[in-house]
């Protein structure tokens, strides 16, 4: 099933492709190699520039940047284990009302429920496990699918509010 899904994306568009959809949303997709830091940064910049252009407030831009960086680190490092033969797929749809970002890796996947809560007293001094917690705190929706290989995140452009603690 996943193989077919991959083929639907067409050829490897390393530099990304974009088109406006019928509702005037900006739409981007990128496929990058797992150890390509420069490509990662370029993808992040492209999406964040669009979010900025669409008038998202500072708090929302900060939240999207934070969640995007964490999700891409997770996909590259924990998902694909920095294997340059593996790809990370990023898709973003940005309207003035919301940004939706989908990130998928080619790793073994993971179970969200198996990741411990880093804010519990017994975990507070452990060095890892905070990326997912931050993504879920800062975005309005975070959904994992495809065995944990794909994450879909939505941030609505709303007045500044504190993220969920």
């Amino acid at each position: 099933m996943d193989e077919a899904g991959s083929k639907d994306r067409g050829p490897d568009r390393r530099s990304g492709s974009s088109r406006p959809d019928a509702n005037g949303a900006a739409w981007f997709e990128f496929t990058i190699s797992s150890n390509d830091d420069a490509a990662c940064r370029a993808v992040q910049k492209k999406i964040l520039d669009e979010v900025h252009r669409r008038g998202f407030n500072n708090q929302s831009v900060f939240a999207i940047k934070l969640a995007l960086v964490e999700a891409m680190i997770n996909a590259n490092k924990h998902g694909n284990r920095l294997d340059p033969k593996k790809k990370v797929y990023v898709e973003a749809t940005v309207t003035p009302r919301q940004a939706e970002i989908v990130i998928e890796d080619e790793g073994p996947g993971f179970k969200r429920a198996a990741v411990p809560d880093p804010t519990l007293p017994e975990n507070l001094e452990k060095c890892g496990g905070r990326g997912i917690h931050l993504m879920e705190a800062y975005m309005n929706q975070v959904e994992w699918s495809h065995g944990g290989r794909r994450v879909r995140m939505v941030k609505r452009n709303e007045p500044d509010v504190l993220p969920r603690a």
Binding site: I73, E125, C127, G128, G131, H133
Partner: peptide, 16 residues
């Protein structure tokens, strides 16, 4: 102005 969870992990390690 920006930091990641990896930076938080580094701070915890230094604190330890």
């Amino acid at each position: 102005e920006h930091l990641s969870s990896a930076a938080l992990g580094m701070l915890i390690k230094v604190n330890n």
